[in-house]
Design a protein around this nucleic acid. Structure first.
Lengths: 207, 207
DNA sequence: GCGATATGACTCTGCGGTAAGTTACCACGA
DNA sequence: TCGTGGTAACTTACCGCAGAGTCATATCGC
């Protein structure tokens, strides 16, 4: 009977999965979970929708896989930095530098972990909470050290400050995504300059 | 024929619109534009879906109306503070205090202006950009003043720092939403304490 | 009676998910 | 070297449903 495009193209599953993950991560990271539709992802990846379902089970399964890859990349880098000997502001700057380096060619990955349109329960929530816990733990640890230098050990103060720090990181990444011509090295310089400017010159100027 | 619940209940349009806006703002602010469905909003407001369409035209129209109300509240308050004589960090703290005061009983309104699931074109985008421009302009102005104290006048530095500042505000509001028992006055104290701690004690401690 | 206020019961579209079948590759026996 | 059967890689064509948006109609105040 009539022709069909079915049949293997000789691409092994593992390789195909990586292709799909790359396309899907870009789509999810750019448009968010809810606004991404799998037919488009399949088309962009050059395959058909059922193949995605064969390999990842569901839209949530695909997102969870993207998330796991991105989360591990980010949390791994932050953990690596935390093992160093930097303290206080210095540790913050080094962490940012690490993020810039790791995300340089795939800045959209940052958004995956903060997608408010992803379902708040189920497999996705587990993956998200696994990685955010790794990250939050280290952020909390860094902020605790920092505030200790100022004699503040109030647990809620630490909690608020940790949130603010994560907010700073988030907004810097957003800015970076919106300015594709800015290199990681330039961001690096900029952040260092801003931090030292704020923490030394302004205090001296105001006192 | 058979009974019907149709017919006026004596509620004038202006009043009904306010009821609907209140319910819708809560839903949009909590769940986001995409995840909110109008049938639920109508049910929560104690009316039927077609009435919403009569008064607001579409889901986007309703969201735009919520947005306009919230945006004006926020931008208006920030403009009021900006007219004062505070400069640098002090201006930042006063702005935050203003936000806490204005949003105390309706913290969810904050999220409306930052809803990534809202359509990026059309009427909504116009309202968003109108209000965010008012806010961004003042944030930019405040940051420019602040960095000038440190001798930094690089335009991109200012842009990044403005983004970071807005990120801080955003994350503080999120934290506040997540901790409903925290009063505006407590947030106020906490923020003041943290800013002064960071900017004085830490510098002295490190130098 | 007439206009404003209201609703039950629809239609229609987009998208997550699936059933059933098609083609290519490959190991292995004669 | 050539079948040949099994399996992995793929697709077309469909289902079902949630939710945006609409139509015709009903009731109340004045």
């Amino acid at each position: 009977m009539a022709r069909s495009n079915a049949g293997t193209k000789g691409v092994p599953r593992a390789e195909r999965e990586q292709q799909i993950l790359a396309v899907a991560s870009l789509a999810f990271g750019t448009d968010g979970f809810a606004a991404t539709n799998l037919a488009d992802v399949a088309a962009d990846a050059g395959i058909s929708k059922p193949l995605i379902y064969n390999y990842f089970g569901s839209k949530e399964g695909l997102f969870a896989a993207c998330l796991d890859e991105a989360g591990d990349l980010l949390a791994g880098e932050i953990e690596r930095i935390a093992r160093g000997d930097a303290v206080g502001i210095e540790r913050g700057i080094r962490t940012l530098d690490g993020m810039f380096a790791v995300l340089d060619e795939q800045r959209h990955l940052w958004r995956l972990l903060h997608d408010r349109t992803a379902p708040p329960n189920g497999a996705i929530a587990d993956v998200v909470s696994h990685h955010t816990q790794r990250i939050d733990k280290l952020a909390h640890e860094g902020v605790t050290e920092l505030l200790a230098l100022a004699g503040d050990t109030d647990e809620r103060d630490i909690s608020v400050m940790t949130a603010a720090w994560l907010g700073i990181v988030d907004s810097l990444m957003d800015w970076w995504v919106a300015h594709p011509d800015e290199t990681a090295a330039q961001m690096n310089d900029r952040v260092t300059r801003l931090f030292t400017a704020l923490l030394t010159d302004i205090v001296r100027g105001q006192s």
